[in-house]
Amino acid sequence: MLAIILTSIAYASILAIGCAAITLLYTSTRVFSFAHASMVSWGFYLTYIFYKLSQLSPYLFMPFAALIVGIYGIIIYVLIIRGLIRAKASEITLMMVTLGVDFILFAFLNILIDYFYYNFKWDIKNVNIVLRDLTVATIVNTSVKAVHIIAPVTALLLLLLMHVFLTKTSIGIAMRASIENPTLSSILGINVDMVYMLAWFIGSMFAGLSGSLLTMLMQGSSTIGSDLIVMYFAGSVVGGLQSILGGLFGGLLVGLSERLLSYYLSSIFPWIYAYRFVIPLAMLVATLLLYPRGLAGLVERR
């Protein structure tokens, strides 16, 4: 029982980090990024590959994996998104172009996997290192794994960091201003382009971090991102797509309800467990139809 609660909280926190990423990209550049899927997969695999090469704790490499994916974000922004935003492309065009980016990132990830297969004889089409996680403590016959602590703490830390960054630092305030009104901010001398680039860097980094934390929680293949992308979308829409904090809470809510709610319901109706993926989707649709402003709308200061 406790094990399920712990896993659910860790899963929900990881989801929340990814939802914050989607929300950040949407609020800043109006891009609802399909490329998020492959970024998560890249974070997942980079962490694994570093771990496998060095045999050290995977946690050490998570920041590096996140950083590399963050750099992808900068490259994507500079090469593709910037031009399209200047050309005033519609939201749908931007969405479609990130789909193209997603295909390319996905292809290169698989090429990397094949490379390790042919040259190192690693069969890493399916990755499972969940059991390698450290056991921190044992409470009532339930072993508390490191990821059960680290994932929620990371999410909380990011929440605090983002809050401080957006309200206390001048770059953060510049970012909020550019999101609110790009024209006015550029008149005031804020380099909106740099701010957007930073947003893409941070957003992609969060996506990569979300993926790299997943290595310790579930097994997966290169499609782990695209399998979970609908959950990430659901979390960010439930969060309201307006503030990063909303995205974090939305992801938390969706993750918890997918795991815990389906667990509780399945003790009453055993057949329901197979349909647990429908819960987040139903939440997404319900949010959009009933209260499109989402969780962020509830606490909006106006």
Binding site: G83, L84, L99, F103, I104, A107, N110, I111, D114, Y118
Partner: peptide
């Protein structure tokens, strides 16, 4: 370089989408 053609198809699709949009 022995790249599996499945991934080449993905790259082709991605490039088509990106280049056409841009």
């Amino acid at each position: 370089f022995n790249i599996d053609a499945t991934w080449l198809e993905y790259i082709l699709m991605g490039l088509v989408i990106i280049l056409i949009t841009m």
